[in-house]
C-alpha cells in the first residue's frame, strides 16, 4: 500500500530526513509520531510528491510518489495540520472544488459530514478559525472515496467534541477497508486509533511496530508494600527511580524484566501491589528524555 525505504532529504546542509523507512499495509491505521521538527511533515510532503527525495524509494499503490503523483492522488486524500485556503471563497465552494478536482465525490456524504462537524459552509474562508479551516479539509477528504488517507496533525485546531467526530470518521474509514497514515503528537488519539505506529526523531524512524510490540520496550510503574523491609532491588538492572517511604516502595521497571523483579518481591511478603500499564505517553517521553540525552530541542 505505502512503502518507503531509506528516504533522505536535506535542506542545504541540514539533514531533515536521514533514511526513513515506513510500511503501511492495506486496511490499517498507521500512527506516525514524533516531536516538532522531527520530520513528519517533510516525510509526508515527499509522499505527496511535493518534494523530491534525495535518496531512497517511496511508493504508494506500487507507484512512484514523485513520477506518478497525479495517478496516486486520485486515490488518496490529504489533510494538513495548517490548512491554507483562498480568503474570498466560501468553505462550501472549496469543499466542492476539491471534490470535483479529485473526482468520486459524494454530495450526500458531504452534507452528512458538514452536519456532523457542525460546519457553516457559507462563510468566506478568510473568516474561518484554524479549526474551521481544518474542517474544510477533513470534510473534503472524508467525502471522497479515497483508498488512503494521509493526515498530518489534522486535529491540532479542533475542540474535543470535534476530535471525537474525527476519530469516528477514521474508525469508519478503517471499517470500510481504507488505510490511514496519521501523523500526530496527540498520543491518546494515536493509542485509540492506530494499529501500528512509527516513532520519528531527528529525521530517523527509531521505533516501528504494533502497540503491543512497543509496550515491550516500556517501563511499568510499580508501587509495593511488603511485610519485611525490601532490599536488594537497587542491584537489579532495569529498575529505575527507586523511592522508599516507610513500608512503601515505588519504582519503574523495564517491562521485559518485570517477571524476575516480581519473583524477587515475593520473597518479602507482598501486602499490597500496584502497577500501572505502560502508556504510549511514557514510551514517547522515554525516547525524548533518555535517547536524546543532553541534546536539547530548541
Amino acid at each position: 500500500m505505502l512503502e518507503m525505504k531509506g528516504v533522505k532529504k536535506t535542506f542545504g546542509d541540514f539533514h531533515a530526513l536521514s533514511g526513513v523507512d515506513l510500511d503501511v499495509k492495506p486496511g490499517e491505521v498507521f500512527g506516525f509520531i514524533g516531536p516538532n521538527g522531527a520530520g513528519k511533515s517533510t516525510t509526508i510532503r515527499v509522499l505527496l510528491g511535493l518534494m523530491k527525495a534525495d535518496a531512497g524509494s517511496a511508493e504508494i499503490f506500487g507507484q512512484d510518489v514523485w513520477r506518478d503523483a497525479v495517478e496516486i492522488h486520485r486515490r488518496i486524500a490529504y489533510v494538513p495540520g495548517d490548512v491554507n485556503l483562498w480568503p474570498n471563497l466560501t468553505g462550501g465552494e472549496v469543499i466542492d472544488l476539491f471534490g470535483r478536482l479529485r473526482g468520486g465525490f459524494s454530495k450526500e456524504k458531504r452534507d452528512e459530514l458538514i452536519e456532523r462537524f457542525q460546519f457553516d459552509p457559507t462563510k468566506k474562508c478568510r473568516t474561518y478559525s484554524k479549526g474551521n479551516r481544518q474542517k474544510v479539509a477533513l470534510i473534503a477528504a472524508f467525502a471522497s472515496n479515497a483508498d488512503l488517507y494521509i493526515l498530518d496533525e489534522p486535529t491540532s485546531g479542533l475542540d474535543p467534541l470535534m476530535e471525537q467526530t474525527f476519530q469516528a470518521c477514521v474508525a469508519e474509514a478503517r471499517a470500510a477497508g481504507k488505510s490511514v497514515l496519521l501523523s500526530s503528537h496527540i498520543l491518546s488519539e494515536v493509542e485509540k486509533l492506530c494499529d501500528r505506529v512509527a516513532i520519528i526523531r531527528a529525521g530517523e524512524v527509531i521505533e516501528q511496530g504494533t502497540l503491543s510490540e512497543m509496550r515491550h520496550l516500556t517501563r511499568t510503574q510499580v508501587t509495593v508494600e511488603t511485610a519485611t523491609p525490601l532490599t536488594g532491588l537497587a542491584e537489579f538492572s532495569g529498575v529505575y527511580d527507586l523511592t522508599e517511604s516507610g513500608a512503601q516502595t515505588s519504582f519503574q521497571v523495564d517491562t521485559e524484566k518485570l517477571s524476575s523483579v516480581m519473583a524477587h518481591l515475593a520473597e518479602f511478603d507482598i501486602m499490597q501491589l500496584n502497577s500501572a500499564p505502560p502508556a504510549l505517553e511514557d514510551l514517547f517521553m522515554q525516547h525524548y528524555d533518555t535517547k536524546e540525552g543532553g541534546k536539547t530541542h530548541e
Partner: peptide, 14 residues
C-alpha cells in the same frame, strides 16, 4: 461579509 455560497455552484469546476 455577507453569507456566501454554500456549495461550488456550476462554475467552480476546474
Amino acid at each position: 461579509a455577507r453569507a456566501g455560497r454554500r456549495d461550488g455552484g456550476r462554475f467552480l469546476t476546474s
